[in-house]
Every structure is written in C-alpha cells, then in structure tokens.
C-alpha cells in the first residue's frame, strides 16, 4: 500500500504539489485527472524520486521511501516503474536492449555495461515483448517504431523491472485514439491479471471513466476530488478543468456509452493488428 503523507514540491515560488495526502491500496487502478499544470506530473515524478519532494513523506508498506538514497533509492525506483508521455526510450538502441534496461537494477554493473545479459534476463524481456505482441520488433531500433509501439516497449521495460506499482505519466497523450486504447488495455490487463497497482495521469476524462476504478482530481497542486468515477458529476468536472472543460467534456459521450472497460481478450485482438 502506497501512502503519501502531506507531500509538497516547491520550485522557486511555485508549489507544484501542495500538501497532498493519499493512500492507494495494492491492486488499485487509480487515475489522476486535472488540467495541465495542476501538478499531476510532478506528483508522479516525486513518487519515483526523479523530483525531490520538499516536504512530506512517502511510504510503501510502512517503509519510508522518501528518504532513501544510493542503492536503496535505485531499488525503490526499480519497484515503482515509470511510463512517460514521450516514452523516454533510448532511440538508438534496439528494442530488446531497451527492455533489458529495465533489468539494470537486477544486474551487476560490469555485466550490464558490457551488455552481457543473462539468459534469464533475455528470456524475461522477450516474454514481456511477446505478451504485448511486439516480439517481432525486438531487433529494430527503437526510434524506427510508431508511437504506439514505442509506448508498448516502454510498458515492457516497466514490466521486466518486476515492479510493485506502475506510475504512468500521461501514457497516451501523444498517441492517436486507436493506439491509446491499445496501451490503456495493456495497462488494464496487467492490473487485473497480476494485481499490479497502477497510478495513471490522464488528461482525457473519457479514458479515465473507462479504465480507472478510482479518480483523484488535482487543481493547483492540491487534491480536490477523490472518489469512484461515477461520483464525478459534470459540474465537478467543469470546476476541475476550468477553461479546458469544454475540450475535455466534448469527448465524454463516447465514454458514457462505453461499459466498464474492454475485456482483456479484446485487447490482444486489437493489438495483433
């Protein structure tokens, strides 16, 4: 269970995250929503400790992870895998190596730096690619892939870390609707199948309604909404999104007709292309 206790992130004069307290049980699929600049991204990056929280604590199963450093910090980062909006793959390396970088925290430095991955690591990485139907892309350079494919590679990298929680920072914001579905389905499948905790920043309310079983709304760095998706009325959404409300809510009707997520089987069909 992830417990955030009074966390703030201050950059100069701005408080990007302001006194946030949350607790997220294992196996939850939590969506963080809010307009751009509300502090969603900073919240996730602070959990992975890419950004240092200025105040407050982060606990994982009663272990204080906000004060870790060195090896222990790297092990925490291994346990909370991160997925980025821009994928953050190493474009010039092939897909398999990109996935294997998820094994870095499991591998002694001298082996990984010479790319002497163990047979187990290679098998794990390949199995992860196979599960997302992109095993055939393994020898290709990552920057030759489409956005959707790159994001699936990034998910593989996250999976082979054997994480306890996946933090996804706007994972579908740079993808077209079809690829967005494929990626979100994959995350959902991982959540249901392995009971993996997923904390996912989403800009689109439509997707948030469709996939998450709990929504956390943020505005100006604070948590202003925390409930099941059904509790988010249009008035509440308008308040949350302010100026951006029309843009976000326009897409809502399709979300309303969508039943509770897409079955896992449909996802693999869709991604088989």
């Amino acid at each position: 269970m992830l417990v955030i206790d009074g966390m703030s992130c201050v950059f100069g004069q701005t408080r990007a995250v302001n006194n946030v307290s949350l607790s997220i049980p294992r196996g939850a699929f939590v969506g963080v929503i809010g307009r751009s600049g509300a502090g969603k991204s900073t919240l996730l990056r602070a959990l992975n400790r890419l950004v240092e929280p200025s105040e407050g604590r982060i606990h994982w199963d009663n272990e204080d992870v906000s004060s870790l450093s060195g090896r222990a910090l790297r092990d925490w980062r291994r346990r909370c895998a991160m997925i980025f909006q821009q994928f953050n793959l190493v474009g010039r390396l092939d897909v398999l190596t990109n996935v294997l970088t998820g094994r870095l925290a499991h591998t002694p430095g001298w082996r990984s730096n010479l790319k002497l991955w163990s047979a187990d690591d290679r098998a794990i990485a390949m199995a992860a690619l196979d599960q997302l139907d992109i095993a055939n892309l393994a020898p290709q350079r990552a920057d030759n892939l489409s956005g959707g494919q790159q994001q699936r590679v990034a998910i593989c990298r996250a999976l082979v870390q054997e994480p306890d929680i996946i933090l996804a920072d706007e994972p579908v914001a740079s993808l077209d609707p079809r690829n967005a579905r494929i990626v979100m389905d994959a995350l959902q499948r991982i959540n249901r199948h392995y009971g993996m905790t997923v904390l996912c920043n989403l800009h689109s309310l439509d997707l948030a309604h469709a996939y998450c079983d709990r929504l956390v709304g943020m505005a100006a760095g604070r948590v202003v909404f925390d409930d099941v998706p059904a509790a988010l009325t249009e008035a509440a959404a308008r308040e949350l999104y302010g100026m951006e409300a029309d843009e976000v809510l326009d897409a809502a009707p399709t979300g309303a007709t969508q039943p509770d997520g897409v079955p896992a089987g449909a996802a693999s069909n869709a991604s088989a292309m």
Partner: peptide
C-alpha cells in the same frame, strides 16, 4: 536528449548505467 537518461534513471539504473545506456548511444 535527456528523456532516455531519465527513463534509465526511473527504472533504477545507476549513474554509470544512465550514462552507458542513456547518453552514450546518442553521442557515439
């Protein structure tokens, strides 16, 4: 581009790994 370096850092890579896998392929 710092995004790959960040990606490696986020998956628990040490500084050497970040340089080795995030930076070196870009500059070689």
């Amino acid at each position: 581009d710092m995004k790959p370096v960040e990606g490696i850092a986020a998956s628990g890579g040490s500084w050497v790994s970040q340089v080795r896998f995030g930076a070196v392929p870009q500059v070689l």
